[in-house]
């Protein structure tokens, strides 16, 4: 079965000459369907670059990115946009809902951009909101929703349609712990439904929800681990946050 996401020796350099910065160096990463991978590392380590390259928002300077088996390097800007529309969903820390569109319209936007008629798209959007328990807020605008509700709408937008790859950048960073847990539960549930998820986070507790944690430092993937169930696993002797490396 084709992996939803595969990075092969991906590098990214910003700037030229003496001002050049290597943000990512030879990164290899494969995320299988139904798998949740957390990416951790200090600020400036290249986590977000990895996510934007994986999501086709930026082009790598070297290596290959494959989404559902399709090599991105051969695609035009518009083809990559269509690929995002069909296969990739994003969730950001600050929700990134489109102002001026209601909750359901935000969810249906990727479908409508793909040519689905408004009425059909709305049906799907309402079904997604129903699953998230937000059916009664379908016609609310983003500024009428709480932070947790906004992030759930963003999550619904990221997963609506046939998308099988979810890329989340600190998805609970702006939420209280209760709302954050609710959002993580939904992402986990999406993975159980067959979606692959890549989660960039500083938060070990959040990473504990993942099947696998990848550590990035100075642009290189330096470690990858399968944490024990539960957040406390990261703090156990031999765990990645105790200072002892584990393989």
């Amino acid at each position: 079965m084709t992996a939803p996401l595969e990075l092969r020796g991906v590098s990214k350099t910003y700037g030229e000459g003496p001002a050049a910065v290597q943000a990512l160096i030879g990164a290899d990463l494969t995320v299988a369907a139904g798998e949740m991978v957390a990416v951790m590392g200090p600020s400036g380590s290249g986590k977000s670059t990895l996510l934007t390259i994986a999501g086709s928002l930026e082009e790598p300077t070297g290596g290959e990115v494959l989404i559902e088996g399709t090599v991105l390097s051969g695609l035009s800007r518009d083809d990559r946009a269509r690929l995002r529309r069909r296969h990739i969903g994003y969730v950001f820390q600050d929700f990134n809902l489109l102002a001026g569109l209601t909750a359901v319209e935000n969810i249906t936007m990727p479908l409508e951009l793909d040519g689905v008629r408004s009425r059909q798209a709305r049906r799907q959007g309402l079904a997604a909101l129903e699953e998230l328990g937000l059916a009664d807020r379908a016609d609310s605008f983003p500024d009428e929703l709480s932070g947790g509700q906004r992030q759930r709408v963003a999550l619904a937008r990221a997963l609506v349609g046939e998308r099988r790859l979810l890329l989340a950048d600190e998805p609970t960073g702006a939420l209280d712990s209760h709302s954050g847990e609710g959002v993580m539960r939904l992402i986990r549930s999406a993975c159980h439904g067959g979606a692959a998820a890549v989660l960039v986070t500083h938060d070990p507790q959040l990473a504990s929800w993942a099947d696998r944690v990848v550590f990035v430092r100075d642009g290189e993937i330096v470690d990858s681990t399968t944490p024990l169930p539960g957040p406390e696993s990261l703090l156990t002797p031999g765990g990645p946050l105790t200072g002892e490396e584990s393989r």
Binding site: L57, A81, L97, L98, M109
Partner: peptide, 12 residues
């Protein structure tokens, strides 16, 4: 940028 992330083409 948000619209771009959800798959809008340049024309859109």
């Amino acid at each position: 940028g948000m619209l771009g992330t959800i798959g809008a083409t340049d024309r859109q």
